[in-house]
């Protein structure tokens, strides 16, 4: 039991961070607006959760310009993907 709980990730206790990570697991990348539309949250709220995931190195940010407008892409890192998979496995074990 202790072993399982160890794999539960604090970063994914928050629903929005969990949602961001779920979406990034199945997409090569997503931009800020797609994530906002998907999760139905405010700009500030989303930005702060993205920042926290970035700080734990679960996602990386790529800034580029599209038709002279800044476009920010978010990608899941391999560290982030591994942590997410472990987290889901832990949840599934707990539910058994």
């Amino acid at each position: 039991m202790k072993e399982i709980l160890k794999n539960l990730d604090k970063a994914f206790e928050n629903k929005i961070r969990l949602g961001i990570m779920s979406a990034l697991m199945v997409n090569d990348f997503l931009d800020f607006n797609s994530l906002k539309e998907l999760l139905q949250v405010t700009d500030g709220n989303l930005a702060s959760h993205l920042k926290s995931l970035e700080n734990s190195e679960y996602i990386i940010v790529q800034k580029e310009f599209q038709n002279r407008k800044p476009n920010t892409k978010y990608l899941a890192t391999s560290v982030g993907k591994l942590a997410f998979t472990k987290h889901i496995k832990a949840i599934e074990l707990l539910l058994k």
């Binding site: 994914f12 629903k15 779920s22 539910l95």
Partner: peptide, 22 residues
Amino acid sequence: MNNQAYLEDLKMIKEMMSRSTR
């Protein structure tokens, strides 16, 4: 967290994965 919360988490993960790709 109790089981109900974990179940809700799993449901949300599934929904986010499906909504972001389909």
